[in-house]
């Protein structure tokens, strides 16, 4: 029996001193949230699909090759999502389309984050004139609705994927800068920042080593939500003919294309629409879950 107690004690002590990093802690809390986990799993699957799209499908044969004899077929065992007006398999096109939607949105959101991080950190940390100038400029950008701004930029630069990414990045910068600025403001006057100054750290080390890592939580959440909104804007722009040019199977472009057939062949619009909806829903579920997991008050 004493042997037994000893084991229990050892296990207890091991559990007590088990090293937990904050990342592991956050993931553990995220894992408790079932809907967020569903979101995370679907997003990861979609990412894998997007990254391996060129390995799974041949762009020429599977995606763009016309096959008039198979045109406008309803979903069946041959074509589980049916075929479009040129006989192309909608399932393959939707899968391949993940590449455009996800990659464009991840890249655009990352660029917005990086630029917003720098501007927001400068504005929040230094305050005064720097803050004034940067934030008023961001206000100007915010005054124009995001989609309208993106339309204006794409229309003036020309329709192409890089221009689309530029347009979507620019319209995301003000949102990120404001969030970074406000989280920098809450951290800036903490005693550990003063302590960092007292050991001789320069501004660069303080901002990137101490201030930003402590203000990361709202940014992670904003990033997932921003990705979702970029997907929607991309689809919207493609629908208007300003996004990804044909014949690339972007989801918004496919929707736009299906518009004229919606009365008789509604499945053509249904599947790309479902793809957009599922992706955005899952990103939002993940974002909400992350927000809860990162909030220390809910520990």
């Amino acid at each position: 029996m004493s042997e037994n107690t000893k084991n229990v004690n050892a296990a207890e002590i091991a559990a007590k001193y088990k090293k937990k990093s904050q990342t592991a802690d956050i993931f553990r809390r995220l894992a408790k949230n079932k809907t967020a986990m569903i979101g995370l799993i679907v997003v990861i699957l979609l990412l894998i699909l997007a990254l391996s799209a060129d390995l799974l499908f041949d762009f020429e044969i599977d995606i763009t090759k016309q096959n008039i004899s198979d045109r406008l077929q309803a979903p069946s065992s041959d074509h589980i999502f049916g075929t479009d007006e040129m006989g192309r398999d909608i399932f393959k096109r939707v899968c391949y389309g993940a590449k455009y939607s996800l990659l464009i949105s991840f890249v655009a959101a990352t660029i917005s984050l990086a630029i917003g991080l720098v501007f927001g950190a400068i504005a929040g940390y230094y305050g005064g004139w720097a803050d004034m100038i940067i934030m008023r400029f961001m206000d100007v950008l915010l005054a124009i609705p995001g989609t309208l701004l993106a339309i204006a930029i794409v229309a003036s630069l020309g329709t192409s994927i890089p221009n689309l990414i530029i347009a979507l990045s620019v319209s995301g910068i003000p949102g990120f800068s404001r969030i970074v600025r406000s989280s920098v403001l809450t951290v800036r006057d903490a005693e550990y920042i003063e302590a960092a100054k007292a050991i001789g750290a320069n501004d660069r080390i303080i901002i990137f080593g101490h201030v930003l890592p402590n203000g990361m939580a709202p940014l992670i959440v904003q990033s997932t939500l921003r990705i979702a909104s970029v997907i929607l804007t991309t689809a919207g722009l493609s629908f208007l003919g300003l996004g990804v040019p044909a014949p690339h199977p972007e989801w918004g472009a496919m929707l736009s294309n299906a518009r004229s057939y919606i009365r008789d062949y509604s499945y053509m619009a249904l599947f790309p629409g479902l793809a957009i909806m599922t992706t955005i829903l899952c990103l939002n579920l993940l974002g909400d879950g992350l927000r809860d997991a990162l909030d220390p008050r809910l520990k």
Partner: peptide, 25 residues
Amino acid sequence: EMQALRGKAVSMIFQDPMTSLNPVM
């Protein structure tokens, strides 16, 4: 030059150890 002195020639212990350490490092 002051940055080179702080922490090297003079250092400071702050009042509240609960808040003077960076929680994410």
